[in-house]
């Protein structure tokens, strides 16, 4: 097995980048779903929630076909690169962030919205306050998105190719070492992965709690 630390860092970098994009897309979407009244909103709510169950390997396959040199996005040359992995994980994590943050913000809006509006705040003026009040719920949404990305193997294996030193992450290493019969090593990496998840969760929850 190649150096272990770069694999851990690569896993973190890919997952954090994907989570960042998922936040950038998912949070505004969540706010629009929670506060907005626009045509088609109920359909989007159903879609976003349905996409929570998106099978990673199908996302991987669809992106593979798009990013392939013959595919619509083939000119990018992203197939078998970390960029493709970030894209795949962003697709997987965005619905999670959007759906969970939507519920958290909506809850606060139901409870405090009338008061805020009575005080003269418009919906959009109230938004920053609502997000702050819903910080823990939003943090859970972000963590759920991060959890999906850091633990996911089906999509990154297909679009990343598990190339040593380039697109090999913790989860693809676990798959590889299992296939080589190195079960103890695979399990050890799994434990490290769990440890990192715990550390990230603790950090984010502490930050969310402090803001309250």
């Amino acid at each position: 097995m190649e150096e272990f630390v770069p694999i851990v860092l690569r896993s973190l970098a890919v997952s954090l980048a994907a989570t960042g994009f998922a936040i950038a897309i998912g949070l505004p979407l969540a706010a629009a779903l929670a506060l907005g009244r626009w045509p088609g909103r109920p359909i989007v709510v159903v879609m976003v929630n349905a996409l929570l169950g998106l099978p990673p390997v199908v996302v991987g396959l669809v992106l593979y076909l798009l990013l392939s040199r013959q595919g619509a996005l083939g000119v990018l040359g992203w197939l078998f690169t970390p960029g493709a992995m970030v894209l795949a994980q962003t697709v997987l994590a965005t619905p999670i962030v959007a759906a969970l943050a939507h519920r958290a913000i909506e809850g606060r809006w139901r409870r405090y919205g009338p008061t805020m509006q009575a005080a003269g705040a418009s919906r959009w003026r109230a938004l920053p306050h609502l997000v702050r009040m819903a910080a823990r719920g939003v943090a859970t949404a972000v963590l759920a998105g991060f959890g999906r990305t850091v633990s996911e193997v089906g999509a990154v294996l297909v679009v990343g190719g598990n190339i040593a030193g380039f697109t090999r992450t913790m989860t693809t290493t676990i798959t590889l070492e299992t296939s080589k019969g190195n079960l103890d090593l695979a399990l050890g990496i799994g434990l490290v992965l769990i440890g990192i998840s715990v550390a990230v969760s603790a950090t984010v929850l502490v930050l969310a709690g402090e803001r309250r």
């Binding site: 860092l9 690569r10 973190l12 970098a13 890919v14 954090l16 980048a17 960042g20 690169t81 970390p82 960029g83 380039f166």
Partner: peptide, 12 residues
């Protein structure tokens, strides 16, 4: 986080 991402993108 930025440093980590920069390291990831370094190969490009």
């Amino acid at each position: 986080v930025v440093v980590l991402l920069a390291w990831l993108l370094l190969p490009f």
